[in-house]
Nucleic acid binder design. Structure first.
Lengths: 219, 219, 219, 219
DNA sequence: CATGAATGAGACTTCATTCAT
DNA sequence: CATGAATGAAGTCTCATTCAT
């Protein structure tokens, strides 16, 4: 991944930089570390190098902070995925690029991924009754479009509605991300090297999905 | 699903029935309704028809209640799935039976499904650093076994390690469950019929996975 | 005044006694000492000898505590006044008894009086738009009844509607109470003896009102 | 009342006009609307069309703003009352003019009246231990002077010390003002005509007081 | 003089958990 | 075993006030 130079390894440089962005970065890490509910606003503030009250100048409340973070990161993800997908023309290759880009992103930005993957469901409770989050819908739409193109081109089966296929693909990819993220989180575990190679997993995911969607000439 | 007659439509019979079981039933509904963090122990107690303190005679604390609930329901699920899978001999049919049984379960017991599907990730935070929950591992093992058998029989591709395939399948199925569960929660919405037919979805899921895993003679 | 032996001179005996009552007593003193807004719930709890949270078992929130205190004390006041008024039969004497009883109460229970007299108006903001507080209305009704009887008996002028006269009388008496209460509050000032004698004032108040309402035969 | 053209019906002209005066006008309305404690400095600033910080160039702090507002309005009131009283020579007429002018003022400038009448007591807490506010003392003095003149002229009874009588009169008049102000605050209510006629009330107040103070030939 | 973004102390309130009955 | 009143730690959020520009 290219963008996002601000990712603070630790307490974040308490200097310039869009303050709102600093808060979002801090929230990303604190939410990822403790989960939304256990996360303390004061810890986010400290990490962002601002006063507690400052957070409320940029966000209505803690919930709004989560939603905003979610949308911010989702935007990045969508842009990232779209750009990788755009490099290809064939549906199969697009799908493969999507999967590969998604999993690479998880590896490169585990904190963001954790918020999107783990807290997403939590926030789903927030959005109870509400329609699917627009940014998430966009991701699904990108996926559905790829599938749809493949169906139109006759390389993907028509048996599964594109939107449904999109959701299935997302679930599959997301589960791999989750499995990797929760593989083991404690620092000490790193050397144990228990985590499987998520990039390698992309091959498997791609294989299953591509073949799974393939149109069978004889059928 | 057939068993499990205790599922209380409303306040739960405030009398007989294993008290521990009544508490679990109540917790299932309250967790499903509000999410683990927002759920109040006192509400669970009320719904179970016991005093707040009584809960602590059966469970160490709120966390333990979630874990216990998770394991209890997971046991049911595993038993249910295993029994359905056992009716078949061919790997493909077993896989299909698994998917169908899982999604049917979601439809019949949405509260339980919500706890397993939505709160699972939340509880994942609890289990941080811990190995995968044994009961969940069992479910994955069942799935991996089916895949493994298929690979051994030469009907499923060897390209994907069985445990990885198992996880992918679970993610895919679980996402469908989630999509259905969050589709719309308000009772009034039922007539609007916005929810897709989750049983119908089983066909799509089965199609994608079965074909996706299929061994290609010519390849 | 006779009743209400529990009035704690200081921290209040941290023992038996209706807990709700202990909290109200504590609130009375803390509200009187600092005013509603500056009063801290924790200080009330401490003075009542209970934990902070205990207050919320008996009252919905701080506002409710004020309202409840107001009603509790107002009830006492109404009972006290009614009993004194009941000792007389002639309207003029009843009116005089009312005034005397009210001012004596202020002297004997300054904390309660301060809450009723000073914070009443503050709480008036709470009750914005709401009809007059029932307990306060009752006091006004007692007064209006006395005036009405006097008018019926031909000893009080008909020129002023009884309810209006009641309100005027209350305002007058209440202002005397306020003047006395705020005369000087610091302990050191007591010896300076700056406060006028509020019981003596009752004579003046009674004189003004009684004569003011008197029916003039020749007019 | 005639003077004081700055009374802004709404947001106040965000331009000329002494800035200090604009702040006081804004404070008057905000305090009247929410009460001193609930009033936000930022809302006052917004209404005055200045920055939050600007307020602190003209006033030491929020308390000082209340005190200053109180004194400013009290000055107006005193001047208004004095001018009306000065039109008469007989004590009884002066007293009547005072009452009438005061209540007319309440009707014409309810916001100012609310601050003086309702918040006065709140601010009384501020001034705890302090001597009576000079401006308020002046009003009482004006009243006491009228009474004193009446006593000297033999038309008012000597039975009540003039300063005490002054206080009683104020209390009575103020209570009528309060009753009217809190009668109903919502604009829509006006047509409902629930509020009694405060000018009409002046007759009653005047009647009670004048007769109440009257010297009885036979006594 | 004026601004308004930032501060940060501190209060109210919740709710999991305990323990005397 | 069961109760449920009481606890008290802890977190979110507000808002008066400051000060660099």
């Amino acid at each position: 991944m290219t963008a996002h130079s601000a990712e603070p390894g630790k307490p974040a440089p308490p200097e310039k930089g869009d303050k709102r962005e600093r808060i979002l970065d801090a929230a990303e890490h604190v939410f990822a570390a403790h989960g939304f509910f256990a996360a303390k606003v004061s810890e986010i503030a400290e990490r962002a190098g601002v006063a507690d009250g400052t957070i409320y100048l940029y966000f209505k409340n803690k919930d709004d902070l989560l939603i905003s973070l979610f949308e911010s990161r989702m935007e990045r993800v969508n842009a990232h995925l779209a750009s990788h997908v755009a490099k290809h023309t064939k549906p199969k290759e697009k799908l493969d690029a999507f999967i590969r880009a998604y999993l690479a992103l998880v590896k490169e930005q585990p904190a963001a991924a954790e918020v999107l993957t783990v807290e997403l469901r939590q926030s789903a409770k927030f959005m109870k009754g509400q329609p699917t989050n627009p940014k998430f819908a966009e991701l699904l739409r990108l996926l559905a479009t790829i599938v749809g193109e493949g169906q139109a081109a006759g390389v993907f089966t028509d048996a599964i509605p594109a939107p449904v296929a999109a959701r299935m693909i997302f679930g599959l990819v997301d589960e791999m991300a989750l499995a990797w993220l929760l593989g083991d989180k404690t620092p000490e575990s790193a050397p144990r090297g228990k985590k499987f190679d998520i990039v390698r997993a992309a091959d498997w995911v791609g294989a299953l999905i591509t073949q799974g969607l393939e149109r069978r000439s004889t059928q």
